[in-house]
Design a protein around this nucleic acid. Structure first.
Length: 436
RNA sequence: GCAGGGGUUCCCGAGUGGCCAAAGGGAUCAGACUGUAAAUCUGACGCGAAAGCUUCGGUGGUUCGAAUCCACCCCCCUGCACCA
């Protein structure tokens, strides 16, 4: 965690974190010679970062731990344009005030992961709106545009599918995106001596553009490094659940859901993800893998990954909350839960809701669907048909469907008002009888 | 603009007058097996507890009856032409 003793590049490679880089030998030497300044950009395309952003963000942290100065760039300007790289269709523009609001949130999130004080190599957060926002068109065209060849740009793989695709096309606006990202690099190079840009592998073309511009404008040598796109062994998209993306914002994805996401990682992916998403030494991860391979039954890797990742993103309290719910839902028994425990579970982020006043007249299927336990009442029906719905531990079936009054009778409630409903193996919801 | 092909339930894709809420595959959800895995098997899969209700680009029409036939309109693809 101090100065770069064993090569940073070696470490990243051992973790499988390098997709592409410019001139390995030179970059390795460059990073070994002393503290360097590097950056990675995050465009505000939503009000939170998600798991896909985490890998490059953690690479920034890994670099800081190795003694370098990271800069997290929030794309307040580029977010207004939209990156066309490897996208199938033109994006819809968001309004400036919306993007500005998102940029603020992203700035806060990014800041959790890197240190700004108390270290010799403090990090920095910048917003490219600062220099792009005030730039005038003629300066842009003369100072930046002149250095980019349209011939090269249209040959880039990242825009090919947009150029070839019938009926899609690409607007001049999005086509210009690469120039903005290029000028960011050149600008950071001038301002802070930034010499390395890190990004996802889809950013390679943009990064190379920035390196070229830095050389042409500043006569400076700069480097690029990309991290691989996170993939899963079964070919499905990483970072998605039934309910959508896994966000870093606890208000959008609760620490409990976040923890559960990692806990459900497939064996085929878990050791790779430990390398990507934790700071455990590679040797330790190899030891975990060996121990799991030798042991019968359930591997320990998933719970280690879930614990490490949740701790890193949501802190000790978030992890504690996630573990409380997990223990209560998957190992403990209802009898072990005290009244305050139940209240705590709801606070910790266990999905919960109040029973509507007229619940007695509604079918169970409707109540469960309205509470968000299932996407359509039909799924609740299916579960009921298989006796896969437990209300306070008691199995319910279709025969009980019109018996909500009996199923949720106050006398059956825990502490007079709580009902823990389990649907299938993984879906839990706390229903609360409204007080009166 | 002309000629030809096409728009089907989340996606792909059958269906060309009743047996169609619509084959098959994928995705998804649930069950069994397990480890809150994977693989496999089973069930569900427009909405609804049910009665029943609403779908096959849009609008109108023919018919006892249409996703299927007719008319017009919208959109996409493929050639050709026009424009260069």
């Amino acid at each position: 965690m101090t100065a770069a003793t064993s090569s940073l590049i070696e470490e990243l490679r051992a973790r499988g974190l390098i997709a592409q880089m410019t001139s390995e030998e030179e970059l390795n030497a460059h990073l070994s010679e002393g503290p360097r300044v590097l950056y990675c950009g995050f465009d505000p395309t939503a009000d939170s970062l998600h798991l896909g952003h985490l890998v490059p963000l953690l690479v920034l942290k890994r670099c800081q731990d190795a003694g370098h100065h990271p800069i997290a760039l929030v794309g307040g300007a580029t977010g207004l344009i939209g990156d066309p790289s490897f996208k199938a269709a033109e994006r819809q523009l968001n309004t400036p005030d919306v993007v500005a609001g998102w940029a603020d949130k992203i700035r806060g999130q990014v800041s959790q992961f890197i240190k700004f004080e108390g270290v010799d190599n403090p990090a920095r957060v910048v917003n490219n709106l600062e220099w792009i926002g005030s730039m005038n068109v003629l300066d842009f065209l003369r100072d930046v545009g002149k250095h980019f060849s349209v011939n090269n740009m249209i040959n880039k793989e990242s825009v090919q599918q947009r150029l070839q695709r019938e009926g899609a096309g690409i607007s001049f606006t999005e086509f210009s995106y690469a120039l903005l990202q290029g000028l960011d690099f050149a600008e950071l190079n001038r301002r802070y001596g930034c010499t390395l840009q890190v990004g996802g592998s889809d950013q390679w073309g943009n990064i190379v553009g920035g390196i070229d511009l830095s050389r042409r404008q500043n006569q400076a040598q700069a480097f690029g490094l990309t991290v691989p796109l996170v993939t899963k062994a079964d070919g499905t998209k990483f970072g998605k659940t039934e309910s959508g993306a896994v966000w870093l914002d606890p208000a959008k994805t609760s620490p409990y859901s976040f923890y559960q996401f990692w806990l459900n990682t497939a064996d085929a992916d878990v050791y790779k993800f430990l390398r990507y998403f934790t700071f455990l030494p590679v040797a330790d991860i190899e030891a975990i893998e060996a121990a799991d391979a030798a042991a019968e039954g359930r591997p320990q890797a998933q719970s280690i990954l879930a614990r490490e990742a949740t701790l890193m993103v949501h802190g000790p309290e978030g992890l504690a909350a996630a573990e409380r719910i997990t223990d209560a839902m998957f190992s403990g028994s209802l009898q072990d839960l005290g009244e305050s425990d139940l209240a705590q579970l709801a606070q910790d982020g266990l999905p919960s809701s109040e029973l509507p006043a007229d619940f007695a007249e509604k079918p169970l299927t409707t109540l469960l669907a309205d509470a968000g336990m299932v996407k359509a009442a039909r799924e609740a029906k299916d579960a009921l048909t298989r006796n896969a719905v437990l209300i306070n531990g008691e199995a319910r079936g279709m025969a009980d469907n019109m018996e909500a009054a009996r199923c949720f009778a106050p006398t059956a409630a825990l502490y007079g008002r709580y009902f823990l409903v389990k649907l299938g193996k993984k879906k839990n919801h706390l229903f609360v009888l409204s007080a009166q």
